[in-house]
Amino acid sequence: MAAKVQTNTPTPTKSNLRVSTVLHAVLLLLVFSATIFPFYWMVSTSLKATVQTFAYPPVFIFVPTFEHYWKALTEYEVGRTLVNSLIVALATTALAVTLGTPAAYALARFEFRFKRDLWFWIISNRMVSPIVLALPFYLLATRLKMIDTYPVLILIYLTFTLPIVVWICADQFRTVPKELDEAALVDGASPFTTFVRIALPLAAPGVVVSAILSFIFSWNELLYALVLARNVTRTAPVAATSFMSGYELPWGEIMATGTLIVLPVIVFAMLVSRHLVRGLTMGAVK
């Protein structure tokens, strides 16, 4: 029997094996380079002197300079817009976690009418094009004199941060044993105390992941900010795009701004890389 398997299987010869290993390595390297190249090129352009930016053929080895970062932060006031992005992303994340974790707890723990419909509604938010909401939000914010204020951005960002928090946290609450809740209730704790003191701390990993994802998505958002922010609340992605007019583009400063925007989120995203796909598919793929 063993001999028969042997004849069926074309056992790879040693050189054959080496070729496929080399091919595997080469292809992996190719994927790796293609993936990081645009990012690498942005960072390296941000560190080049202006003359080297326009050099043709492109310069790959050079002495880095931080002058573009300095200019972006002082002359173009990118720092202020980064702070705005931080304020909006942190506030919307805090609000989404505060409002979303109790709802996630209810969805994981209780049976009630309309539960199905509630799930569907929450998931559907993943699909809606932001332009559909941006139009009425703009008109409403104009009437309420809320254009260019923090609250309007914080509120509209809830349309994507809240569903993410509810989804990821509900998943996490389901892993917390029900018996712990029941024990607390028997001991006389109110349902709300049980939620805050028992279930929520045990679901902390899920809460943290959902908070990081909601921070990343808010930080990266452009369309709503473009429509609803002017000067006071202008976020960093809007500032980055505003450079893009005129003929003499300050490429170094543009790429320095891009790097300042992207670097923190990449660090955050790597921390939750295992959950990134879960967040992007609303839990359909784990």
Binding site: L28, V31, T35, A269
Partner: peptide, 27 residues
């Protein structure tokens, strides 16, 4: 190499789409 490639996949996913547009303008 596999671990390195896998983690590098996070970079495009996390990149601010507006900044991806800037990268395109440059390249």
């Amino acid at each position: 190499l596999r671990a390195l490639t896998r983690i590098s996949l996070v970079i495009p996913l996390a990149t601010t789409p507006a900044v991806a547009g800037l990268m395109g303008r440059l390249m």
